[in-house]
Every structure is written in C-alpha cells, then in structure tokens.
Amino acid sequence: MTDFISNPDAKHKSGKATKIALRWFLLLLLLIFALYYLMPLFVMVTTSLKSLEEIRTGSLVALPREVTFDAWKTAWSGACTGIQCQGLQPYFWNSILIAVPAVFLSTLFGAMNGYIIAHWKFKGANLIFSMMLFGCFIPFQVVILPMARVLGMMGLAGSIQGLIFVHVIYGLGFTTLFFRNYYVSIPGELVKAAKVDGAGFFRIFWSIFLPLSLPIIVVTVIWQFTQIWNDFLFGVSFSQAGTQPITVALNNIVNSTTGVKEYNVDMAAAIIAALPTLFVYVVAGKYFIRGLTAGSVKG
C-alpha cells in the first residue's frame, strides 16, 4: 500500500512544513506506544537488579542505584515454591523435559497427518480434518476432569510423561493444520509422477516432501514450543511437587505467603521463565508471527 502523508501526488497539497511536522508527530506517537509496550519489561529488569531496600525507598521507574544480581541467584536456585526452596532451576529443566519430546512428537505426527490429508485423500479424510481442526478450539476445561482420571489409570498421574502425552494429544490439531495448509500448495502432479516411478507413501514423503518442509517445520516447532512452555492449565492440573513446569513454579514463588515479599526475586523469576520464548521470538520473529497468523486465520 502507498503511504499518504508523504505522497507528493496527493491532490490536497499541503505545505512541506506541515507534512514534516505531521510525520514527526506520527513518529512521536509510535514511540509513545513503544514505551507503553516496553515499560513492563523495563520495570521487570530494573526491579530484578535492585536490592529490597532500594525497592522500598526508591521509585518503580528509576534505574537501580546499585546493581545487584542477588535476586537472580535466589530466583534461580534459592526461592521457595511452597515448602521447597530450590529456586526455579529444577522446574526450568522440567519444562525442557516436557517441551522437547512433546514438540518433536506432535510435529512428527502433524507432518504425517498433513501429508495424508493434503495428498492421500480417502473417503472421510475431510471429515477427519474438520474434526481435528475443531479440537483446536475447545476450552481445555472440558477435558481436564476425564484426563486426570485417564492419566491415573495409565499410571502417568503427576508425571512428566503424562504432561508430554497431554501436550502431544492437544497439539495435534494445530500441527496437522499447519502441515496440511503448507502441503496443499505442493502440486499433486509431483506425487503422481513419483508414484509412476514406483515410489511409495513413505518414500515420497521422505524424498520429496520432507526436503521442502523446512519453513513449516520451523513455524510448527516455534508455535508448539511457545504453547507448551507457556502452558499453565495442564501444568497446574496434572503435575505434582517435583514435576511442575516453570510457569507453575513461578506462580508458586510469586504467591508464596511465607516470609518477606521479595519483589526483586519475583521479577527475576518472571524474566527467567520468559527468556526461552523471548529468545525464540527475537531470533526467529518472522516464523513466530507466521505461526500466530496461521493459527488464527484458519481454513
């Protein structure tokens, strides 16, 4: 789209000075909004670097007079989540142990499902796809009660494996959708030609589709990782002391009622919990946004 404010062809020719003033005003507004979005992050970082004493006496928006990393150390390895005081560290690893296999498995299944639904249509394939798509939308509250019972029956109650299982199952809808929409744009003639040459189902996937799939794999992995890392509902419902993911531990630290309220530790803990997904966003923002929009503009 063309811009209007600086467009010399616009019929209402305003003075050059007005135009420049208008552009500066626009830029100023955009910067104010940027400050609004950055403010909480700024406050989190500065608070985490202050001592409790400075927090009580100083201002929320002031830079730390004396930078200290004590709060970070406590948040990582000493803060209390209820009775245990090991910091976020063990829960950080829990989240990794949950996210890595769950992302891998749900992406793998999604790729196969998408490949089949896009290029190996059989009667009922569309219905299956619609049913899976629908599964993306349900509020998970509606499956929590029976899932808790089934995990118990499977002997997975309160375990990391149980959480992996849950995340794989409820990630399938999205991963299938991503791969299906991507594979639909690969021409069917390619599959037909490969079949004529004697290639089978897996061979075609392996040597034709997989090499073309890197962008959608990146999108899917980022989407799934963000979803699983940031999940709280499944984590709080299906874990027990020791297997909790980082979001649950963070919430426990912040809302732990024993002792003095250590705001700097809370903020350091929140940043630690946010770092992995923030890192992914900064490094691979383009793919992150593509996943978000693909996950919302469905069909």
């Binding site: 992050l41 940031n230 919430n251 946010a274 923030l278």
Partner: peptide, 9 residues
C-alpha cells in the same frame, strides 16, 4: 513481543 510471554509472566 508480549505475545511470546506466558500469561503468568
């Protein structure tokens, strides 16, 4: 960027 954060954060 806030969209990358957990609601808990």
């Amino acid at each position: 960027y806030p969209m990358a954060l957990s609601m808990i954060v």
